[in-house]
Every structure is written in structure tokens, then in C-alpha cells.
């Protein structure tokens, strides 16, 4: 009996490995496909922006401003609250940690660099993904299911030109600006806590921070947030445009858009740092 069974086990193992590899290969393939679709979509947006008017598909500036209000200006209250909380938290953690080395006053350095290079772009990216990425995905998915996108096409209004490109431009402008705003608020909050704990004056904090930070640090953060902006809009659009399955599908598309764009933001952030610090 054992003689009969033994050969089966390796076969089963091979079958198992084979199946898993097929699943993995499918995931990779669909991932690569989505990457390709995303790149095409981004290129299409740039095409409409540059050459739309030769195809009677002009990207309207007022629509971009509307989207800028929606994505940037209306997000300022929540962005401010989040940044303030992050600033206080970082200062608390920094002072507590540095106290063990007796180097509390170095908190200014730690906070300044980590906020400008990491925390502000990340937190604002995640905020915009949750607020505007989800809204865009839900909007496109609903319009797709209610045939509104078909109606646009039938009127010779390209949906990518009309709906996606303005949002992309608006996010590209507003996310870095929100990040810059977040830099200021987070550092101010940190200064407030440091003044309260260590008695360091606002002015001293500010001067020290400005001495540490240079344009490169700030551009690093703002550059990253511009990349995040593209990721958020493209991922939301892909999920919205390829929706299927009624109201439930809209929910799924929205969730997927938010989860994927946050994942993409964090992974891109890591890759970005790897690239920048290696070179």
C-alpha cells in the first residue's frame, strides 16, 4: 500500500506548487496589466491637456478650479487638525525618546526632517486618497452604471478629458500645496509642545528649524506628494471605469481604489527613499 501511495505525494506537491504558481502568475499578470492601463490613462490625460483642442476636446480651466476647491480648499480644516495632532505626537515621542540620551533639544532636528520629508506627504496623500480618490472612484463607477459615461461619449464628450483630466491637474496642484500647509502646521504644533515642555521659544524653534531645512528637503516632500497625486487619481479612475455589478460594485470599486492607492503611496514612498538615498 505504501508503495502505491508514496509516488502520489510528490505528484500532489508538484500539483500544489503548480496551482499556486498559476495563481501567482495571474496576479502578476493582472498587476502588470493594470500598470499598463494606468500608464496609458496618464498619457491620455496629458494628451487631452496638450492636444485636446485639436480634437474639439478642450480641458476647461473652470472645471480644474472647481476640482481644486473640492480637493484642496475644502480639505484644509481636516488637514489642519491632522497635522496639528501629528506635530504634537512627534514632539512628545521625540522628547521622550531623546531624553534617554539627554538630548531633548535635538527634537527640533528630528521633527523638522521627518515631518517635511515623510509625515506631511504621507498623511496628506492618505487624506486625499480617502477624501477625493474615493469620491472620484464612486462618481465614475456610478456614472458608468447609469450609462452617464455612454451619454457623454454619445455627445462626443470624452469622459477622460471631461472628468479625469481636470481632477488629475487639480490634485497635482493641490496635494503639494496641502503638504506644504501641513509642513507649517505640524512644525508649529511641535514648536508649541516643545515650548510647553522645554521652554524653547517659538522664535528659537523657528530659527533652528530653518537652519536645518533646505530647499532640497522641502522639494523632496513636495515632489513625492506630486507622485502620490498621480497615483491616487489614476488608481481611482481605473477602479471607477472598470466597475461591474450594480450598487455593490460601486462600493467594491471605491474600497479597492482607496486601499490600493494607500498601498501604492506607502510602497512608492519606500522606493522613492531607496532611490534618493542610494544615489
Amino acid at each position: 500500500m505504501t508503495d502505491n501511495r508514496d509516488p502520489i505525494i510528490p505528484v500532489r506537491f508538484i500539483a500544489f506548487v503548480g496551482q499556486r504558481s498559476i495563481v501567482a502568475a495571474r496576479c502578476i499578470r493582472s498587476g502588470v496589466e493594470e500598470l499598463g492601463l494606468g500608464t496609458t490613462l496618464f498619457a491620455e490625460c496629458l494628451f487631452w491637456l496638450g492636444f485636446g483642442k485639436y480634437r474639439h476636446q478642450t480641458v476647461r480651466v473652470p472645471t480644474i478650479f472647481e476640482q481644486m476647491m473640492e480637493i484642496g480648499i475644502f480639505a484644509i480644516p481636516i488637514a489642519t487638525v491632522l497635522s496639528f495632532a501629528i506635530g504634537i505626537t512627534l514632539a512628545m515621542q521625540g522628547i521622550a525618546l531623546l531624553k534617554t540620551f539627554g538630548a531633548e533639544s535635538q527634537v527640533v532636528l528630528a521633527v523638522a526632517l521627518s515631518v517635511v520629508r515623510e509625515f506631511s506627504p504621507l498623511i496628506m496623500g492618505i487624506l486625499v486618497a480617502g477624501r477625493s480618490g474615493s469620491a472620484l472612484a464612486a462618481r465614475l463607477a456610478t456614472m458608468n452604471l447609469s450609462q452617464e459615461l455612454d451619454a457623454l461619449r454619445s455627445m462626443s464628450i470624452n469622459p477622460v478629458r471631461f472628468l479625469v483630466t481636470p481632477t488629475l491637474i487639480a490634485t497635482l496642484i493641490m496635494l503639494p500645496l496641502l503638504t506644504f500647509w501641513s509642513d507649517i502646521i505640524t512644525l508649529a504644533a511641535s514648536a508649541l509642545y516643545t515650548w510647553n515642555q522645554l521652554g524653547m521659544s517659538f522664535q528659537a524653534y523657528g530659527v533652528t528649524t530653518l537652519g536645518i531645512l533646505n530647499a532640497n528637503h522641502i522639494m523632496h516632500g513636495l515632489g513625492k506628494s506630486a507622485i502620490f497625486a498621480v497615483l491616487i487619481v489614476i488608481i481611482a479612475t481605473l477602479n471607477g471605469l472598470f466597475v461591474s455589478g450594480g450598487a455593490e460594485g460601486v462600493g467594491r470599486a471605491t474600497t479597492r481604489a482607496v486601499v490600493l492607492s494607500i498601498a501604492a503611496i506607502i510602497i512608492t514612498d519606500m522606493l522613492f527613499i531607496l532611490l534618493v538615498t542610494q544615489s
Binding site: 462618481r139 456610478t142 447609469s146 451619454a151 454619445s154 455627445m155 462626443s156 471631461f162
Partner: peptide, 30 residues
């Protein structure tokens, strides 16, 4: 497409706009 009109089954009116804006959209665009 400027010479043809389509009335979709469910209407497919743009829900984020008023009826007036819906009617004006193709005119404004083209």
C-alpha cells in the same frame, strides 16, 4: 456625433447637474 442624439433607456441624465445644465452641456461643449 454632433448630428445625432441619443435618449438612453434610464435617461442617463447627469445626476450632479440640474436639468437645465444637462441640456446646456452639449451646447456649451460644442
Amino acid at each position: 456625433r454632433l448630428r445625432m442624439g441619443v435618449a438612453f433607456q434610464g435617461g442617463a441624465m447627469f445626476n450632479s447637474m440640474t436639468v437645465g445644465e444637462n441640456l446646456l452641456l452639449p451646447l456649451r461643449e460644442h
